[in-house]
């Protein structure tokens, strides 16, 4: 892998970053396949935004940049946000879209307030916290990339191990329960995987656009296949390509944030798939109808 990148004349640190972005993209595209089919794209976006205040709170309390601590903070406010959405839907006449809209803005707004506080009082740029909104691959140091690499490998492994169970739970939760699968536990596991993607990707991609990296690659993959296994792998591959091209663009061109570059790459892949995808692409369907 390393030798592959050195062909392009990148230095060792950049090679590390590119490897990390590739693996993160793959993991998020694979896990995103299940999120997409579970129709939880929007709620995972809300959750991603809502991790910001949690991460900031943890930093204010402990003043260290530690992934396990961030994970706890992110899980706390991420979970709180999804619970808040559920509560609003159940207890008021507000519909799902409005409930998600309100929750995103409140949590993200609060996160921005905390982030500004950190920058003014702790010099957040030293910890790389200033990149948490849109991500900045160039700000990553070796230990950050190690966390991303190991985290992404674990995520992909779990998705592969529980593939059959996730598939059943997403397609038909009642049936899954009937055959004795622990549906709530598996739902919780999938939720944790999304959280983990958000937290390990926070510095590279940022909280604003990480959901797009979860959803867009598998959405593009859906235009090429009718098999979940292929979709998950292809979604992962599209995610990997988006991740690496976003990282390359943002490290070679000055001051370009990484998250938006990754999402633009993913969106280009989506657009091409939408037009030319072999199963559901617009042109493909038109040709079939001729």
């Amino acid at each position: 892998m390393m030798d592959f990148f050195s062909v392009f004349g990148f230095d060792a640190n950049t090679e590390w970053v590119l490897t990390g972005s590739l693996l993160l993209g793959f993991a998020s595209g694979t896990i995103g396949s299940f999120v997409l089919l579970k129709k939880q794209s929007l709620i995972s976006d809300a959750m991603a935004h809502a991790t910001l205040p949690g991460v900031c709170l943890v930093y204010i309390l402990f003043q260290v940049k530690s992934i396990p601590l961030f994970l706890i903070g992110a899980a706390l406010t991420g979970l709180l946000a999804t619970q808040a959405i559920q509560l609003i839907i159940n207890r008021s006449r507000i519909k799902t879209d409005a409930a998600i809209g309100i929750t995103i803005s409140v949590f993200f707004g609060f996160g921005i307030v905390l982030l500004t506080y950190i920058q003014q009082h702790f010099g957040g740029s030293k910890a790389g916290l200033d990149t948490f909104i849109f991500g900045q691959a160039a700000s990553l140091v070796k230990s950050d990339v190690q966390v991303i690499t190991i985290g992404s490998l674990i995520l992909t492994l779990i998705a592969a191990l529980f593939f059959k169970e996730f598939k059943t739970v997403v397609f038909d939760p009642s049936f899954a329960k009937g055959i004795g699968l622990p549906v709530r536990l598996l739902d919780g596991l999938l939720f944790s995987l999304v959280l983990l993607v958000v937290v390990i990707g926070i510095q590279m991609v940022g909280v604003v656009l990480i959901a797009a990296l979860l959803i867009t690659p598998p959405l593009a993959a859906r235009y090429w296949t009718e098999q979940l296994g292929v979709m998950a792998f292809l979604g992962g591959s599209f995610g990997a390509v988006s991740g690496i091209s976003g990282a390359v663009l943002s490290t070679t061109i000055d001051h370009l944030p990484t998250g938006p570059m990754m999402v633009l790459s993913a969106s280009s892949i989506f657009f091409l798939s939408f037009l030319f995808g072999s199963k559901k692409g617009m042109f493909t369907r038109m040709v079939k109808q001729l």
């Binding site: 089919l37 129709k39 059943t168 397609f171 038909d172 055959i179 009718e226 292929v230």
Partner: peptide
């Protein structure tokens, strides 16, 4: 279950669905 309870646009084929009956 009732047929309307699942999303039939799910990317999979008939055989795969039947195999779910063997997952236990």
């Amino acid at each position: 279950p009732q047929r309307s309870e699942v999303d039939w646009d799910f990317p999979t084929n008939a055989l795969d669905i039947v195999l779910m009956g063997r997952y236990r």
